[in-house]
Amino acid sequence: MSGHHISSAKFLWGIGFALFVLTFITVAVTWMHIPAPWNVVVAIGLAAIKATIVAAFFMNLYWDSKYNLMLLVMSFVFFFLMIGITLLDTLFRNDPVPAF
C-alpha cells in the first residue's frame, strides 16, 4: 500500500528548513516595495509554494494515493468557482459600496 512512506529525519528537517527560508523570503520581498498588483502575486505565489511543499512532503501526498490528491485539488477548484462567481457579481455592481 502507498500509505506507509517513512521519511528520513534529515529529509523532514530539510523540508522544515526550506519552509523557514521561504518564510524569510516572503517577509524580505515586502522590503523591496514591489508595485501593486505584483506584490500580491508574489506573496500568494510564495504562500502557494510553501503550501504545496507542506501538502506534498509533510502531508505525504507525494507518495500517497492519487485519490487523496484529487480531493485536495477539487477543493481548490470549487473554492475558485465560489470566488469567481462571487466576483462576477461584486466587481460589476453599479453601486459598488454596500451599506455594510
Partner: peptide, 14 residues
C-alpha cells in the same frame, strides 16, 4: 495540523 499550518501560511501574507 498541517492544514491548520497551511491556512496560516496564506493568512500571514494576506
Amino acid at each position: 495540523w498541517h492544514l491548520v499550518d497551511v491556512i496560516w501560511i496564506f493568512l500571514f501574507p494576506l
